[in-house]
Every structure is written in structure tokens, then in C-alpha cells.
Amino acid sequence: MLRFTVRRIASLIVVLFALLVLVFLISRYGGDPVRGYLGANASADAVAAMRTRLGLDQPIWVQFADYLSRLARLDLGTSLATRRPVAAELAQRIPATAELALWTVFFSVLIGILLARVYTLKSRFSGVLRLILFSAASAPAFLIATGGVLIFFVQLHWLPVSGRTGYGPSTGLSGMYVLDGLLTGNLPYAMDALRHLILPALAASLGPGVALARVLADGLSTSLRSAYARTARSLGETESAVLRRHGLRNAASPALSLLGVQVGMMLSSLVVVEQIFSWNGLGQFLVRAIGGADTATVATISLLLGAFYVVVNALVDIALAVVDPRVRLS
């Protein structure tokens, strides 16, 4: 297991480095940063001066080394859109997106497991439910989000639909409001943050959740019909022991792999969801940066999201190896 983990992390580092190179190249050649700063009508002298100031007259590997060292010092430049240091902007927004992403993953898994249970019920009701949910899962996140807003805010007034809290930024350390509220013992604050979270997180997690449920239910029914389940029954195991000891673990692998892929899709839907719910996170920042042709910021956020995706998938692989010995021992 240790050997597998070490090898997986080694290959993770290789991929992360490749990602760095890619993002660096895109930020250098994806648009002209000088024009971004100075505008299209700047004089040739000013452009040349800016190029020198930004180090763009240096050879490419010097630029790359410079980029790495600035990255290590968290010197990420200045955002064109807000005219503030990118690092400061990110420090404020990463927890916001992280909180939303974590809850989205949590809801996806919850929906997945609950629905998988419904799938295995043999009733007409579950067939109808399956159809409804399948349609829901086919809808893009923004449609579900808009529908959620219409129903739970406009009609029922149950849930808030804008921002992260009704109180103002948290005083806690993590920047994740629900967690901060709990840590500081401010329960109403945590509840309020949670209420703000529900709609955006659900909007982003419904699709992945239903997909997860299908794979999990398929896996369960396959493993319950498998030869090893039959062996277990023939050895006198009860049906619930067969499910617990043999079914769940064998069904978990495909579901875990799917979750890894779904995290990527979740990230892209979070960008949209953050816009709809005025969630002041990375997604919103990214949209503003794109609008303002702020190449450096876009590159940095892409790097962050990419790194997150790669790391999550490495973790999924390691989790797969824990669940299925064939992965780590072959």
C-alpha cells in the first residue's frame, strides 16, 4: 500500500509540474499582458518599457524560473480587474469556493447513496422517481439553480439565494462560514451560512449525485449477483451480511472512479453556480478576470482548479487501492 501511494504521489508531482508548464505557456502566449496593462493605444516606448518591467524580454526559461520563484513566494501579480494583489484576492475567495465544493461533494455522495437505495427497491414508485431524477440529472446546473431559485425563494421564501451569509464575513480562521460558526460557538451564524449553502450546493450536486447513484446501484446489483456473493450465501451468510461484507466494498470502486471524474465537472458547474447565487468565490473572480482580459489571473485560477482536480484524482486512486487490492498489488 505504501509503495503504491508513493508511486502515485510521484506521478502526481510529474503531472502537477506539467500543469505548471502548460499554465505558464498559456499565460505567456495566450494573450498580450502588456496590452492588457497599457491598453491597445499605448506608445511603442511604453510597451517596450513595460515588457522590460515584466521581464518579457528575458529568455523563456529565465521567465519560467522567475515565474516559479514568484509562485513560491505567493507573489501572483496584481489583478487587472480589482487592482489588488491576486494573492490577497485568492486568500479571500478560496475558502468560499472550497466550502461550496466540499458541501457539493458531500451532497453528491449523500444523494448517490440514498438514490442507490431507491433504485434497488422494486416498486412502481421507484420507477417514476428514477425517471424524474434522470431528467433532472440531464439538466445543466444553471437550469436547476434557476429552478431552485424560482421555487424555494420566489414562491416559498424558504431559502436565501444571494451571498454566503446574512450577517457579514466570519470572524473565524478558516474562512468557511459554517465551520467558523461552529468553531466559535456561534450556532445561528453557522445555520444561516448553511441555509445560504443549500441551494447552490444542491444545484451543483444533483447531476453528479444521480450519476453516482446509478453506478453505485449497478455495482451493488452486479456484486450481489456475482459468484462470490453466491459463495458467501452457500457458506451460510445472511443476505445482509452478504451486502455488508461483500456487496458494498466491491461496488465502491466504480463509484469512486466516477466521483473523481465528476469532481472536474462539478468545478465547471460551480463557476456558473457562483454567478447565479452571487457567491464571492473563485468562479466569480474567474469570470471577471476573463471579462477583463486579465490573463495572469485567469492562468493562476486555472492552475489552482487544475491542481485541485489532479490532487482529488490522485486521492481517488489511492482510495481505490485501499478498497480493491488488485489495484495496488498488480
Binding site: 459468484a227 459463495t231 452457500s234
Partner: peptide, 14 residues
């Protein structure tokens, strides 16, 4: 009790 045919699939791989 039983001895089944295919010992590959008849034993839980995990």
C-alpha cells in the same frame, strides 16, 4: 456446502 466451478470469480477479490 459447495465447491463452485470458477475459483477466480467465486472468491471475493477484495
Amino acid at each position: 456446502t459447495t465447491v463452485f466451478q470458477d475459483p477466480m470469480s467465486s472468491l471475493d477479490p477484495t
